[in-house]
Amino acid sequence: MTKAVNPVSGLTGDPAFLATTFVVIDFEATTPSGYPAQPVEIAVLAARYHEGAFRTVGRGASLIRPPAFAPVTPMFTAQTGLTAHDLADAPTPAQALGALDSRFTPDRRYLLVAQHAATEAGLIHHQREHCPALARIDLLDTIPLAKHLIPGLPNYRLDTLLAHLSIRHPPDRHRAAADVEVTAQVFFHLIAAADRDAQLCDLAALIKLAGRTAKCNQPAQDGLFDL
């Protein structure tokens, strides 16, 4: 069980909030020239709010073998510790993301949670053929939420939030499993603060402030000159 937050009427008393499974997600990726970023590791932590606390209901992590056009670089290895050898026998994107996709059921409401959710949204969208269910889940971004609830920080990078919230910096920072764990802790702290914020009285208000629509859910724009 994760650390309890104060149960008060408001956000965490909203039936829509209570019915939502929040899936914290993090990718590590290579950034090949001329191509979209390619995932090489993914981790998720699913949590639901129940009786005054967030409770973990699922988690998972997987390495992902990158395509030949997106090799692991020395800079990437220096940041993450992952080498080409580590990824040589990893599952393909179709295998890793397909396995995750199968865990989402159509009768539940989900929101993805990420630090700088645009990055995760872009990676998921480019891999949508392998994870069609995941690609249709909207996101919450911890950055605008933190800016609203903790104004005045010099920046809102993950390391800054960890220090401000006294969350232990993981030794394997920049690995997906470690980053998803601390991002979840940041999110739980932010929800505790949001529960005391009159502007964030329900899930709809939270989404209005920090939500990001999945690219697959955005309306397609018709051509300007279609007749």
Rank of each mutant, 00 (worst) to 15 (best):
171 P>E: 09
74 P>C: 07
180 V>E: 00
149 L>F: 04
112 L>V: 07
3 K>T: 15
12 T>F: 12
40 V>K: 01
203 L>I: 06
148 H>R: 06
106 P>H: 10
129 E>A: 12
11 L>M: 11
98 G>C: 10
169 H>N: 12
101 D>Y: 09
75 M>I: 10
209 L>E: 10
71 P>C: 03
54 F>M: 03
153 L>W: 07
188 F>V: 12
193 A>H: 14
83 T>Y: 07
197 D>F: 09
38 Q>D: 13
124 I>W: 02
192 A>K: 08
217 N>G: 13
189 H>M: 07
148 H>G: 08
61 A>G: 10
176 A>E: 05
190 L>Q: 03
103 R>E: 14
192 A>L: 04
16 A>H: 01
210 A>K: 07
96 A>E: 01
31 T>K: 08
188 F>S: 04
106 P>I: 07
216 C>N: 11
67 P>T: 05
99 A>N: 04
167 I>K: 00
155 N>V: 04
119 T>E: 00
85 H>A: 15
6 N>G: 15
65 R>Q: 15
196 R>C: 13
122 G>I: 06
176 A>Y: 02
138 D>L: 10
207 I>F: 12
216 C>S: 14
185 Q>N: 05
31 T>W: 08
75 M>Y: 09
5 V>T: 12
54 F>S: 04
163 A>Y: 10
35 Y>L: 11
51 E>C: 06
107 D>F: 05
218 Q>E: 14
99 A>L: 11
30 T>I: 03
99 A>V: 04
30 T>L: 04
121 A>W: 08
167 I>R: 01
112 L>D: 06
162 L>T: 00
207 I>E: 03
